[in-house]
């Protein structure tokens, strides 16, 4: 592929270590505007580590990451990025409404000492409607089901009208009906030119949207290309580890509830 085409996200030969242990080695990843790329792999294959490095949450030991053709350390247009972190829920120690959590997704557009405006709240309402939670805007996030909280986090990522959407297992726990609705939302975004990077352990309900798959195995790219060319064993549920070893490459310690890690 010619390098002159604009990219939303480009990782070149990145190595990432966690606690001194190499977890990701030599990974190449490109997402172009209007492209839906799925980063696939078993638990512990390093896929979360790759995306976390791509959005600057983890340092790369070597290699480089570009967001919209700007190196990560110089990148400052965070309002263009929508991010759904891998979390067990959207709640914290103090009650917050669904709407408050979603509005916080517009923070990249706001100045210091700038409080949310009417247009922030309108945008939140629209995105909540898209993820099927319009009637829950004033509910406490902690009272929603796990799948509903996940949809709140997706709405929060969408509310800033991102040009690049990065989602780490966003549909875990989301019911089939809502997954279909979300697939429609994502399809619309991609059609409008949004670049999407999805982390998943199986192609699953969003399979029809996927332009390209990057399959990780033990921190290395095992396959990159069209979903149709995916090794059969990896197309379905690949929750088992390919080599039977329980965890040769461990994922990061899941930040169970603590928002500080």
């Amino acid at each position: 592929m010619p390098m002159s085409l604009p990219t939303a996200l480009r990782a070149d030969d990145i190595d990432v270590s966690l606690a001194g242990r190499p977890v990701v080695r030599g990974v190449e990843l490109t997402v172009r505007p209007g492209e839906f790329v799925t980063l696939l792999g078993a638990n512990g294959s390093g896929k979360s580590t790759v995306v976390r490095a791509c959005v600057g949450l983890l340092p790369c030991e070597s290699g480089s990451v570009h967001l919209f053709d700007t190196t990560l350390d110089r990148y400052d247009r965070w309002d263009r990025i929508g991010f759904v972190p891998q979390r067990s829920g959207a709640a914290s120690g103090v009650p917050a409404t669904v709407s408050e959590v979603v509005v916080s997704g517009r923070l990249g557009r706001r100045r210091l000492f700038g409080w949310p405006t009417g247009s922030d709240r309108r945008a939140a309402g629209e995105r909540l409607a898209q993820v099927g939670l319009a009637d829950r805007a004033t509910a406490a996030v902690s009272q929603l089901s796990g799948g509903q909280q996940q949809r709140v986090l997706i709405a929060r990522a969408l509310v800033g009208d991102p040009d690049l959407l990065v989602m780490d297992e966003p549909v875990a726990g989301v019911d089939a009906g809502s997954q279909a609705a979300l697939a429609e939302v994502f399809a619309g975004l991609v059609a409008d030119g949004t670049a999407v990077l999805l982390v998943a352990h199986e192609l699953g309900p969003l399979a029809s949207l996927v332009d390209r798959v990057v399959l990780l195995r033990e921190g290395r790219v095992a396959y990159a290309g069209a979903p149709t060319g995916l090794p059969a064993a990896d197309a379905g549920d690949s929750d088992h580890h390919p080599h039977g070893d329980p965890a040769p490459v461990r994922p990061r310690g899941l930040p169970s509830q603590g928002p500080w890690r």
Binding site: E100, P116, P259
Partner: peptide, 16 residues
């Protein structure tokens, strides 16, 4: 708004 975002979800706040 900033303090709420950081305390609610630090990683998301950083990516914002």
């Amino acid at each position: 708004p900033q303090l709420f975002a950081v305390c609610q979800d630090e990683e998301h706040a950083r990516v914002s």
